[in-house]
Amino acid sequence: MTMLSWFSADLHIHTVLSPCAELDMGPVNIVKAARELKIDIIGITDHNAAGNVVAVRDRAGKEGPVVIPGMEVQTREEVHLLSFFPEVKQLQAFAAYIRERLPPVRNRPEIFGDQVVVNGGERILYFEEILLVNSVTASLGEVVKEVLARDGLVIPAHVDRGAYSILANLGFIPPALPVAALEIARPEKLPDLLLCYPAVGQYPFVSFSDAHTLSQLKGRFRTYFYLKQPNFTEIKKALQGEGGRKVVIRQGPGSD
């Protein structure tokens, strides 16, 4: 029987594919920083696209960190939703679904920044031309259904922010929405959030860096999972509190 142990995780990281991320957020630097910071599991979650997940996973290789395939979707309600999948192939199928629902607006790099798809060695493969920081035409409910149909899980992002947040935009978490956890940007303010939105207390909380720059990877807070193995399935079980698995938020190396 495998014992449970603690794994540090940062499941909300942007790469150079996100126009708002800095150009040094490539696979080589991200993997190097994650190793230095002793982050065991990372999630690559670019806006409405997944083109750099394989590159980061290739770069991480056997040495790690473990890379969970993911995406940060912006639904038509302008809600940011982290979605994660057991395998890259499910993410890629989901990415195709999302791409068909992106408005046909071209990126203007001089305003938004470049959207770069690279390989594991940071060779540029191509520039994504459709603007990724936009709302897709699918609703929150539809997007969640598509993620779950591909064995994924969803975590509404930075619910405590004033913008792109499920709580700000929709007032409360729709009761029947199957969300695995809520991401909170400022865990130190959780008591205030619970005062305003008592119902969110029923969900597990996680806190990730939402890093767009290398220095942000330090993270003011870090989330730790108590798991048998560092993988998607175990994380899902931990969020459900299954078999002694659990999740906690602690101060990160980037805290003041």
Binding site: G141, N169, G171
Partner: peptide
């Protein structure tokens, strides 16, 4: 412009 069901609850 929101068409989500939460508008009814509000």
């Amino acid at each position: 412009l929101q068409g989500h069901q939460n508008i009814v609850a509000v």
